[in-house]
Structure formats: structure tokens, C-alpha cells
Design a protein around this nucleic acid. Structure first.
Length: 792
RNA sequence: GCUGAGGUGGCGGAAUGGUAUACGCGCAAGUCUCAAAAACUUGUGGAGAUAAUACUCCGUGAGGGUUCGAGUCCCUCUCUCAGCACCA
């Protein structure tokens, strides 16, 4: 490829097939694998993607949700997400920002453990294998990750600080123990949080485990909880300040679920209602004694007792029902058939009175004044169950001392006997054990290991017992973004996050991830950040200023699933077509926010396009740098303008379409690209196709086969500027409409675009238009530079 | 049921209220070749009509409306996808 000649006609292949085949071991005129290996090694060795974490002047923290290794490797959906995030980071870097784009693995927790159990490996062994494979894959897509600062949640130097977070929560009264009816998955043999229980099947509520799909039962167990409900109001009130999509914000609002209402006493029973204004139409009270989850039919029985309506002294029958949810409000409601469909359905079925009276808004005030009830704010949000009766997680760093419990002493007065593990003793290391499989007796595997749980009380020195449950994975991932900037720093061993670096880099400027985490990870992270802020440990309340939810990749119109056998393994495509082609194709499928449909034929098309880019630029390298083609140059300006506009909005698909239009025009031109145009174009595609862009950049800037000392990567170039004046052609296609219908376009000089007289004259005399203007126009609409519309 | 996003060629998808279907895939014909593949070139919404790539009409889920002009704005309906659901 070193002795390039000027092709007499660029539109025909510039390299003959024979020459091509003799030199290149692939059907493409370059070998993508060689390029990828070459540049990935170069970038790593020359720290091209490592940011100066201390000295950066324009920090930009670009983060993609880290993956959890719950399978053999990453699937194409992960690649999609990482590529979309990476293009944004690269674009911001080319805008002059110091972009920090870290990566890690959320390898602790049920997801990974279940997979390890399934394939019959010890979770720890599986973690080592998956770490290697996942990181290889993450390298292979050529993202600009800073590989000097990774986080793996299962390494003691990370989970030490996860435990530290737990300790802070306890010290500030936000962690407590409670016996509660919790969600229990009998297949995973553990407790699940409300957020990890899915409601499945059309219309029929059916509680199933998020991970294994097994039916979830209610079980009474003593658990550790985080008091996230203490932050319900703040979590809700901050939502309008977030630059997140309405969809995700709406999901959180709904999940927190604030309702303003009143509790009203009917004798010794108390109800909760959001409609105290309908107190005048109450005809029965309904309790939750017969509650059945998932029942579609309303059932109940009369208790034989009555209550008195404080408003009018009427006797109100009390019914036991199956449709009132316990655990929300007071578990008792006032039945108002006239104003509530469900109450109406129930009242009709059991022939209960129906009083039709208009709601009376003054009742809010009256009820409070008379002392019948009081205003309350309720939230749907429940406290976060942290305990997991499993092996593969961070041990909860708590110690229970029987001696102290008896004497009533404890770190928190409300919880005698309980003490946090002293910070100097962290981490509580997860021991290597063989009987790591989950048990069905409500305790975790660690509860069978004396050598683990036997310890001494930090308070009185007596023999004490460690907590043997481990933390929910979502605790691991609720603070990881705080850790990245500090990894490998001088304070990494002393603090979870360096205050100076935290101030410099956080909150995260751009967070990208799946919308499925709307109420899970994103809510927990906000809560933990808020709590740490209130403990005086963070200068901000919200962890992610901007969150962008990417779409889902489907395959040939159907959701990818193992049972259908249509899961796309990205490795095969990277091997066959190259990382650049895969990146470009994934981004071309549709808007990044919407996801796309993966098709092999589309992949082929992108592979061809990469080849066209190569031919175009290589045939132009270092020849006639002054030579250019007006039309091509103009098309390039349009492509730059479009991409500059599309990238911040993540409309990568249309940006790529612009590149294609440019290449199409450039390849039909008789002249090669000028060197400066070629450089602009290569810079433009660099965020999308980093390897080939770098290779082409060396050809354009050094001309040689070796990379010279002091070489500046294409990825450190500034995003190209464009000439606005060239976006408009010297002539414009002016549209002539009759009654709003397009009848003709005429080409006129740009300068005449706003001259109505000239255009009207041309239009009236146009043969095609004339015949529609037999009756003179009643009205003429003229839009300068665009169109003229005759209304007849 | 509630909330949110949608419905555009054979397919994925483009269109600040102003030329609907950019770009890509697929398909067809052609160039090259002994041949094939690859690559390249041209064509490609539907119906009608024609010697003609002249021309006419219809077309963005359905029906109304606003407007000189609607895929885009408003109303009614319908279907799809995602999330949430006896939360009183």
C-alpha cells in the first residue's frame, strides 16, 4: 500500500483485485485484525486513553453502567451500550474535555453466583475466569476505557469500602434489623427486595424472581434494612432537577409513589384515604384480613361489627376483604362505592348500600378541625432489604454480642448487642469455603462456619458472633462511581474516595445505561449519595447529572433469548468484520435511545462501507494536497455539520448516514480528496471507527509505515470545524406548489431566493405549472429561499 | 386499568408545519470474469397510462379538524412495545 498512484478514475477500484489478493489475507483491502491489535497495543502502551486524573483542567466523567458477569461473556447488547457511551466520550474529548471513561465488573451477587452454580464452578473461580474474558471482550471493541483504574466489586480492596458504606449507614441510624414478611425465592434460597420481584403474565399479577423466574413467596425473617423511606421525600423532590429522560423520571416518581391523604378514625379503627372529601358517602369499611395477592375477583365477608362515621354518626358495617393491601396506609380503607370503582364492584356484589353524594372539599379541613383524623403523606416506597442468605457477596460488617444485649448496651440504643466491625478491621473477608451453595433454612452458607462467625465483641471483648448474611449486589453498585477516580491513588488504601478527586470529577457528567435500572440501581445510588452527603462526606446530593437510557438490541425482529437461540455473540462479528464495522453497524441500526434490530445482512453492508472509507482515504493520501473538488468539499461540510449536531443528541444513525453520503459523493468525483479534507473526514469518523481512523491518520500525517516519536493520535485531535457558508449551494432548488401540492422545482441562483418577483415570473411561465394556473391565483404564499405556493 | 414511547416502502429506518421514503439492507439488470465470489454502475412506494426516465392519480394505523400547505399540530378511535398495577 506504500506506492500509491493517483487513480485516473477513483470511481473504479483503485487497487486491482490481483494486487489485492496477493498482499492481503482478507477480502477487504486491509486486514482489520492486524489494525485492531496494533492500535489497541499502541494505545495502551502510550496511555492514549488514560486521563491525567490530578491535572485535568476540563474534567468530564463519562460513565457507562458496568456489566455483571452472569454469563459466559458479553452479548451484543452490552457492546451496543458500551459503543454508544464510548462514542459520546470520544466526541467530548475531541471537544477539548479531559474525558474519564472507566470500566469495571459488578461481579459480586446473585447474578454471577447463580451462573457459577449453573456451570458448576466455585463463584470465586468463575469470577477470575469471567474477569479475564469480559475484559478481553471489552478491550476488543476499542473503547477508550482507562484501564489503569478498574473496579471489581468482589475484590477485598473494593468491598472493604462497601462494608464501610454499611457501617456509615448503621452509625447514622439508617440501617436497622426487623422481622418482616419478605420476598423469598425458594430457588435462589434468598430474600429479594421489592424491586427484584417481577410481576408477570398479562393482567394477572404473579410475583416471580427477577433472576430465575421462580414464584416468590412471603416468608417471615429477621433482616437488615436500609431506611430509604427516610429519603422518600427528597428522592422525589430532586427529580425535576435531573437531566434524565421523562420515562425514567416518571418511573421513579411512580415507584416512590407519594400520596397526600388523611388517616381518619372510625371508633377504634383507623383508615387511610386520599379522598377524605368523600367521607359523606362512606357505606362500609374494608380490612385486609383476607388479602390475596394476585386475586382478580373481589371477595369478602361481614365481620358482624360496625363502626361509627364521625361525620354523621351513621353505623358502618365492617367487612373483611381480599382486595385491600396490608402494609399500605393502615391496611383498612373506607368503602365509598359512589366514588371508587373497586368499592362499587364490592358493594354491588354484597348488596351494600350506595350513597350518591357529591364530594365535599371542605371536609379536609373539617376532619382535622374536629379531631376525627389528620393529614398524612404516604409513600409507596418500602425500606431496602440488604440481607442476602447467600455466599457470594460482601459479608455484612456487623457483630452481635449476647453479653452486651443482656446488659442493654449497643452502638445504637435501639439495637442492644449490635456493633459495627471497627473500620480498622475492614474488610471482613469472605472466606473460601466449599459448601457455598444456598441453603433452604433461611440462613446463609457462612452460618455453618464457626471460624468465620466466631469473634470478639468490639465493645466488651466477650465472645460474639458475626452477621453471616451478605450484602445485596445493589449495595456494591450503589457507590462504585465514587471509587473510580481514586483507584490506584495515594489515598486508595485509606479512603473509599479521595475528597479532592471527588470534588474534581463528580458528580458523573454523563451516565449511560439501560432503562431497566430505572427503579433499581438508579434509585439506590441516589439514596446512598444523598445519605453520604448528609453525613458530610460528599459535596453533592445527586450522583448522575445526566442519565441517558439506551435502547434494546433485538435480533431479526425478536427479543434475544437463549431459549430461542438467537443471542448474538459479538466475538464472532468482531473476528469476521472487525470492531469498527461492528461499532458502526450497531450505531447505524437506529437511534441510540431506541435500540435496533440486528441483522447479518446489515452487518455486511457496514463492512462494505468501511472498505469504501479505506479506499477513498488511501487513494488520497499524500497526493496533490491542494487538489479538491468543490462538490465533495461541500458535502464534507454538510457531513461535519450534521454529525456535530447529531452526536450530542446521540443520533448516531443519522450522523453515519451523513458519512455515507459524503463517501458516495467523494467516490464519484474524478479528483482525490485534498489532504485537509481527508484529515477532517478521518477525524470525524474516529469516535465511531477508532482503529481504522488511527491507521488512516498515520497515513495522512506521517505517510510512513512506522509510527514516529511524538506522534499525536487522531483521538487527541480537535473535532473538525466546518464552513457554514458552504452549506448552502450556489444555486437552490426552489419548490413551486399549487394548492400545497408540489408541481415543479426550479433551479435558481442563491441570490434570487428571496426575490418574489423574479420567482413568481419564472413560476407563472413554467410549462408544468401554467396548466394549473388557468384560473388566476387567489393568493400567493412565498417562503424566501424555499417555496412559492399558488392558491387557486 | 394507569404511565410512557410508538405505528412511514419487501425490511432497518430519514424527514426545524414546506419536494415523504434520506442512508442502509434486500431485490433486479449491467460491468469485470472461462465461471463464480468480491467490487463497481444503474434502477427500485403503489396504481394507471405511454413510443417515452412526457404525464395522471393514490399514498406515513383509521376517522375527523386547524392551515395556503400536515408523517409532523388538535380531537376521537385502534393496534404494538416497555414499565407499573386491587396503593384506596
Amino acid at each position: 500500500m506504500s506506492d500509491q498512484r493517483v487513480p485516473s478514475d477513483v470511481s473504479s477500484p483503485s487497487i486491482s483485485a490481483d494486487e489485492n489478493e496477493a498482499k492481503i489475507p482478507s477480502k477487504q483491502s486491509f486486514f482489520h485484525k492486524d489494525l485492531e491489535v496494533k492500535w489497541q497495543v499502541y494505545w495502551k502502551e502510550h496511555n492514549v486513553n488514560t486521563v491525567d486524573i490530578q491535572g485535568a483542567t476540563k474534567p468530564f466523567y463519562n460513565l457507562m453502567m458496568f456489566p455483571y458477569p452472569s454469563a459466559e461473556g458479553l452479548h451484543v447488547g452490552n457492546m451496543y451500550a458500551f459503543t454508544g457511551s464510548d462514542i459520546y466520550g470520544r466526541f467530548m474529548r475531541m471537544q477539548g474535555y479531559d474525558v474519564f471513561e472507566p470500566i469495571g465488573l459488578d461481579g459480586f451477587g446473585i447474578h454471577s453466583e447463580n451462573y457459577a452454580l449453573k456451570v458448576g464452578r466455585h463463584p470465586k473461580e468463575h469470577a477470575a475466569i469471567s474477569e479475564k474474558h469480559f475484559y478481553e471482550q471489552l478491550h476488543s471493541i476499542g473503547a477508550c476505557f482507562d484501564w489503569t483504574r478498574t473496579v471489581e466489586t468482589y475484590h477485598p480492596d473494593y468491598y472493604r469500602w462497601t462494608q464501610w458504606v454499611f457501617v456509615q449507614m448503621f452509625k447514622h441510624g439508617l440501617a436497622y434489623r426487623s422481622t418482616a414478611a419478605v420476598n423469598w425465592c425458594n430457588s435462589c434460597k434468598t430474600v429479594l427486595s421489592d424491586e427484584q420481584v417481577l410481576q408477570e403474565e398479562h393482567g394477572i399479577p404473579h410475583a416471580v424472581c427477577e433472576r430465575c423466574g421462580n414464584k416468590v413467596e412471603k416468608k417471615s425473617l429477621e433482616q437488615w434494612f436500609f431506611k430509604i423511606t427516610a429519603y422518600a421525600g427528597k428522592l422525589l423532590d430532586n427529580i425535576p432537577k435531573l437531566q434524565w429522560s421523562e420515562k425514567v423520571k416518571g418511573a421513579q416518581e411512580k415507584w416512590i409513589g407519594r400520596s397526600e391523604g388523611m388517616t381518619i378514625r372510625f371508633g377504634n379503627l383507623e383508615v387511610f384515604t386520599t379522598r377524605p372529601d368523600t367521607l359523606n358517602a362512606v357505606t362500609f369499611l374494608a380490612t385486609s384480613e383476607l388479602y390475596e395477592e394476585g386475586s382478580t375477583e373481589k371477595k369478602g365477608e361481614f365481620s358482624g361489627e360496625y363502626a361509627i362515621n364521625p361525620l354523621d354518626g351513621r353505623k358502618i358495617p365492617i367487612w373483611k376483604t381480599n382486595y385491600v393491601a396490608p402494609g399500605y396506609g393502615t391496611g383498612i380503607i373506607m368503602g365509598v362505592p359512589a366514588h371508587d370503582e373497586r368499592d362499587m364492584e364490592f358493594a354491588t356484589k354484597y348488596h351494600i348500600d350506595i350513597i350518591k353524594k357529591d364530594p365535599d372539599p371542605t371536609l379536609w379541613e373539617k376532619i382535622a378541625r374536629e379531631g376525627w383524623g389528620k393529614r398524612v403523606t404516604k409513600y409507596h416506597l418500602r425500606d431496602w432489604t440488604i440481607s442476602r442468605q447467600r455466599y457470594w457477596g460482601a459479608p455484612i460488617p456487623m457483630i452481635y454480642c449476647e453479653t452486651c444485649a443482656k446488659s442493654g448496651s449497643g452502638e445504637q440504643s435501639s439495637m442492644p448487642g449490635w456493633f459495627t466491625v471497627p473500620e480498622k478491621d475492614l474488610p471482613v473477608v469472605l472466606p473460601d469455603i466449599d459448601d457455598y451453595k444456598p441453603r433452604d433454612d433461611g440462613v446463609g452458607p457462612l452460618a455453618k462456619h464457626k471460624e468465620f462467625y466466631e469473634t470478639v465483641c468490639p465493645h466488651c471483648g466477650a465472645l460474639a458472633k458475626r452477621e453471616t448474611d451478605v450484602c445485596d449486589t445493589f449495595l456494591d453498585s450503589s457507590w462504585y462511581y465514587l471509587r473510580y477516580p481514586s483507584v490506584g491513588g495515594s489515598m486508595a488504601d485509606q479512603l473509599p474516595f479521595d475528597p479532592e478527586l471527588t470534588k474534581k470529577w463528580l458528580p458523573v457528567a454523563m451516565y449511560t445505561g439501560g432503562a431497566e435500572h430505572s427503579v433499581l440501581h438508579l434509585m439506590y445510588s441516589r439514596f446512598v449519595t444523598m445519605a453520604l452527603h448528609d453525613f458530610g462526606l460528599l459535596p453533592f446530593e445527586e450522583p448522575f447529572l445526566t442519565f441517558f437510557a439506551h435502547g434494546l438490541v433485538i435480533k431479526d425482529g425478536a427479543k434475544m433469548s437463549k431459549s430461542k437461540g438467537n443471542v448474538v455473540n459479538p466475538d464472532i462479528y468482531i473476528d469476521k468484520y472487525g470492531a469498527d464495522a461492528l461499532r458502526m453497524y450497531l450505531m447505524f441500526m437506529g437511534p441510540f435511545a431506541d435500540g435496533g434490530d440486528f441483522r447479518d445482512t446489515g452487518m455486511e453492508g457496514m463492512y462494505r462501507f468501511i472498505g469504501r472509507i479505506w479506499r477513498l482515504v488511501v487513494s488520497s493520501a499524500n497526493i496533490y494536497p491542494e487538489d479538491t473538488d468543490e462538490k465533495t468539499h461541500r458535502q464534507l461540510q454538510m457531513a461535519i455539520a450534521r454529525a456535530t449536531d447529531d452526536l450530542p443528541k446521540r443520533r448516531y444513525n443519522t450522523a453515519i448516514a451523513g458519512f455515507m453520503e459524503f463517501v458516495n459523493v467523494a467516490l464519484t468525483s474524478k479528483k482525490p480528496l485534498s489532504t485537509s479534507d481527508a484529515k477532517d473526514f478521518v477525524t470525524l469518523i474516529a469516535p465511531f471507527a477508532p482503529h481504522i481512523a488511527e491507521e488512516l491518520w498515520t497515513k495522512l500525517t506521517t505517510g510512513g509505515e512506522t509510527i514516529p516519536e511524538g506522534y499525536v493520535s487522531v483521538h487527541h485531535q480537535h473535532w473538525p470545524m466546518y464552513d457554514k457558508s458552504l452549506l448552502i449551494d450556489s444555486s437552490i432548488q426552489f419548490v413551486i406548489q399549487v394548492n400545497g401540492k408540489m408541481r415543479e422545482t426550479i433551479s435558481i441562483p442563491k441570490n434570487d431566493g428571496d426575490n418574489q418577483q423574479v420567482i413568481e415570473e419564472l413560476a407563472r411561465n413554467n410549462e408544468k405549472v401554467k396548466k394549473f394556473l388557468i384560473t388566476g391565483p387567489k393568493k400567493i404564499i412565498f417562503i424566501a429561499g424555499k417555496l412559492i405556493n399558488f392558491v387557486v
